[in-house]
Design a protein around this nucleic acid. Structure first.
Lengths: 199, 199
DNA sequence: AGATATCTGTAGTGTTCACTACAGATGTGG
DNA sequence: CCACATCTGTAGTGAACACTACAGATATCT
């Protein structure tokens, strides 16, 4: 028995195109027509490969998360908690204003509030944002064990603070804030981190 | 000549209902059917009074902005820049987790990215967020003139930082962060503000 | 080469969307 | 009480939506 006609498009390249559309217009603002055009495929190919619009989003998020994990490994690989925070904040400022991507972050632009029937989308995005916060917290727990953070420093709070600031930077970036503006925010936040870290 | 049949519903009360729906589901996630049901009116009444879905959003935002302005007057009415920052951060933490409202802030939940044809919506929301930032900046400019802020303190940067943090808090609130979590973020941010303020 | 399994492109499907035509209701001004 | 202006409720409108039936194309496996 045969194995069928092979797929004529590169699924990963297509996912990158889809990611860009979701990022730019949000989940609900994106139409299948826009996706199929950006991916250069027809609807049946999209549905055969990804199941549904939401399935496509999840596949795109998986790809996004893969890259983000690789990036986070580099970030938490820094030798001190301070340097982790610095890299996290500064590289976020740069990534969110990288002209190669839409402004902001897919995990925020994708949609904080959705309509009936898509309630799962904001939840899915939130879960992936939480993942980043968890990775930071774990790194700070380790730092505390290494006496790299003060006795009274709270790893969970530090991680949550950094997560909040970068989410806020997303909002600013989506309304046109430039790289320098975000870097200034990052710099101020880093000082706050230092204060808390030595507590 | 007569003046016509009077409107049978209270427009302001209806706007409050509409505001809640937009806040909970975002602009694109909200349907006219949901709005008319929440407002307890039929589509023709909605369109006669507000012109379009986008017109209704703007009317709801005007009402939202009115309240926000009153609140901001109270905030910038504090006697010191530090107290302005403290009120701004702490009351944001409380407002965004007030069970009387949907979580977060309408100006963020409403939609950061929208589909083709609704590009104006994120723009409108961003303009109203910027307004808050402007009000803070003006207050800090005054504070600097009063030597309430250090020689090297940058009012625009301080306002932008506070604005970014509260936007980040919105994102956290929308994914279920509780009041204490937001207050902790606010407290850390306030220390950063203090550092910058005395510069 | 033939049978089979899967993909691709065309051309739709039913549903839901924002929005409205129309007729009857209800007020005001004369 | 009558003419008129505006609102209200019913019942739709065309357009856009996510999604798919189907037929032909193209690969693999025997």
């Amino acid at each position: 028995m045969g194995m069928g006609r092979p797929r004529a498009f590169d699924a990963d390249a297509a996912l990158d195109r889809a990611m860009d559309v979701f990022w730019r217009h949000g989940y609900e603002g994106t139409t299948i027509a826009q996706l199929t055009e950006a991916m250069s495929i027809n609807p049946p190919s999209l549905y055969a490969a990804f199941g549904s619009k939401e399935g496509l989003l999840k596949a795109a998020l998986d790809r996004y998360t893969e890259r983000r994990d690789a990036w986070m490994e580099k970030v938490v690989g820094a030798s001190t908690a301070r340097e982790v925070a610095e890299r996290f904040l500064m590289e976020h400022a740069d990534a969110q204003t990288d002209p190669a991507n839409p402004p902001g972050c897919l995990l925020v632009q994708g949609g904080l509030a959705c309509g009936t029937g898509s309630e799962n989308v904001p939840f899915e995005l939130a879960a992936r944002r939480t993942r980043t916060e968890d990775q930071l917290r774990e790194r700070f727990v380790r730092a505390k064990g290494e006496r790299d953070l003060g006795e009274n420093a709270d790893p969970a709070m530090l991680a949550r603070y950094l997560s909040a600031v970068t989410s806020g930077m997303c909002v600013m970036a989506s309304s046109g804030a430039d790289r320098n503006a975000l870097r200034e925010i990052a710099a101020v936040s880093l000082k706050a981190f230092d204060e808390q870290a030595k507590a």
